[in-house]
Design a protein around this nucleic acid. Structure first.
Length: 436
DNA sequence: CATCCACAGGAACTTGGGGGCA
DNA sequence: TGCCCCCAAGTTCCTGTGGATG
């Protein structure tokens, strides 16, 4: 009944049907136009290929360190270092999965468990993750997301792991995100509690100096083996891109200079293969959208600026309200500073004052200066602002804050922000004050 | 050259929301 | 239902800092 009424031919529904037709034609047109991609996903950094060019040595080394697992012997714990996008995670996952398969063939129980510590940064969450991966659907081994004491969880995990003879290889990616020593200490000592099973840990870090801040016992236990991944050079990045292109893109659509340019740009940024792949993928996407038959260095340049702008816009849109409010304060100060005595930069004190004023306007309770100082550090870390500690002599130590993106870009990103209307009225009032 | 300012940033503590257990 | 736990976000308190100033 409802269906019948909904397709009655009123003028309104006719319009709707026409626009539906338009959309269908749009999709048809898109599908019919020149297809530059064969498989877009192969150019995504999350895709792990079967062949990793220029990482043969690392694969062999990791494989040989982990190989005792195939004889139920405990592999050494490993700590891996290297800048982002140099293949640490890819190599580890590739070898880990292969190890698991070989184990299965030999009738050995080997589990490869990958944990990103950015998401699981406490002992509780890591133990919960391990239990999920080992989950045998037994209700008594399911661990809730919170509510239980850690020692209870720990005892459950020990029982779960030790139920059978097995080797667990636990990868802690971005291990430096774990904030306390106790978590790593507990994990590296877990074998002392096990009778049948064994666990070894691979810690992956972007930070070469990560172990400097570790407890000495954790450091020696975790770092039984150390692997350092060097950045790819431009030539190696070109090889990586060419290998992926063969399967990902239609033949002969790239100008000769596209791959060298993507590789060169990524090589400048500490040899990041992810960056090179993103750059190439977005370049092809831009060409496809413009119905161009070839991808040229012009598309690469466009892609380069698009990626950076998109990244910043995405980061800003995902900020919590209080941090966006702080950004509005920065935006306003930057705008007025242009016309004032000191156009260079703002300092913590004046920024906090402006932030408190804005909070009152939008009826938010302003947070403490200490908390806002943390926000400033976070925005600095995200590359949206630069906050440099300076001493103003007798007038104290503060941070000099500068916007790292253009004011126009920031205004563009914030134009549809929830606070914008109320705040723009304040701006008017302030302008009046300035004139007076 | 001691003093002083306006913070930076570490550490401990609080609050409130999520949840489990007996 | 009351008590316990975990955790994120925030506050309070504190010590440290470094160069202009008198």
């Amino acid at each position: 009944m409802t269906l019948i009424t909904s397709i009655e031919t009123t003028s309104e529904t006719t319009n709707q049907l026409e626009s539906l037709n338009d959309v269908q034609h749009l999709f048809d047109r898109i599908l019919q136009t020149n297809q530059l991609f064969i498989n877009r996903d192969l150019l995504r950094s999350t895709y792990i290929p079967e062949i990793l060019p220029h990482r043969e040595e690392e694969i062999t080394e990791l494989g040989s360190i982990l190989s005792p697992a195939l004889k139920y012997e405990t592999p050494s714990n490993i700590i891996m270092f290297g800048k982002p996008g140099v293949g640490k995670t890819a190599v580890t996952k590739l070898v880990g999965v292969e190890l698991q398969i070989r184990g299965k063939e030999l009738g050995k129980h080997i589990h490869f468990i990958y944990i990103n510590c950015q998401l699981s940064d406490t002992l509780y969450k890591i133990l919960q993750h391990i239990s999920q991966q080992l989950n045998d659907n037994q209700p008594d081994t399911i661990i809730p997301s919170s509510g239980l004491p850690v020692d209870v969880i720990f005892a459950k995990i020990i029982l779960l792991i030790d139920k059978q003879k097995q080797i667990l290889v636990v990868v802690l990616d971005e291990v430096d995100k774990i904030r306390d020593d106790i978590t790593l200490y507990t994990l590296t000592r877990i074998n002392e509690q096990l009778r049948n099973a064994r666990l070894s840990i691979i810690g992956i870090s972007n930070n070469l100096r990560f172990t400097d801040f570790l407890d000495a016992r954790v450091k020696s236990s975790l770092g039984q083996e150390t692997m350092v991944f060097n950045p790819y050079d431009a030539q190696q990045l070109q090889d990586i891109l060419r290998t992926r292109c063969q399967q990902a893109l239609a033949p002969n659509i790239l100008s000769d200079d596209v791959i060298p340019l993507c590789a060169a740009i990524a090589a400048q940024e500490h040899g990041d293969a992810r960056r090179a792949l993103d750059l190439l993928r977005v370049s092809v996407e831009l060409a496809e959208r413009k119905h161009d038959r070839n991808v040229t260095n012009k598309h690469v340049r466009l892609a380069q600026s698009k990626i950076e702008k998109d990244r910043i816009a995405e980061v800003i849109h995902s900020l919590p309200a209080q941090q966006r409010l702080l950004l509005h304060a920065i935006r306003i100060l930057q705008k007025y500073n242009k016309h004032m005595r000191n156009p260079s930069a703002m300092i913590t004190g004046e920024l906090y004052y402006q932030y408190v004023e804005l909070s009152k306007t939008v009826r938010y309770t302003p947070l403490s200066q200490r908390r806002v100082a943390d926000f400033i550090s976070e925005l600095d870390g995200l590359g949206i602002i630069s906050a440099r500690v300076i001493s103003k002599g007798r007038y104290g130590t503060t941070r000099e804050i500068q916007l790292m993106i253009s004011l126009t870009e920031l205004e563009h990103i914030l134009q549809d922000d929830e606070f914008i209307e109320e705040i723009s009225q304040v701006k008017m009032k302030n302008q009046m004050k300035l004139i007076i």
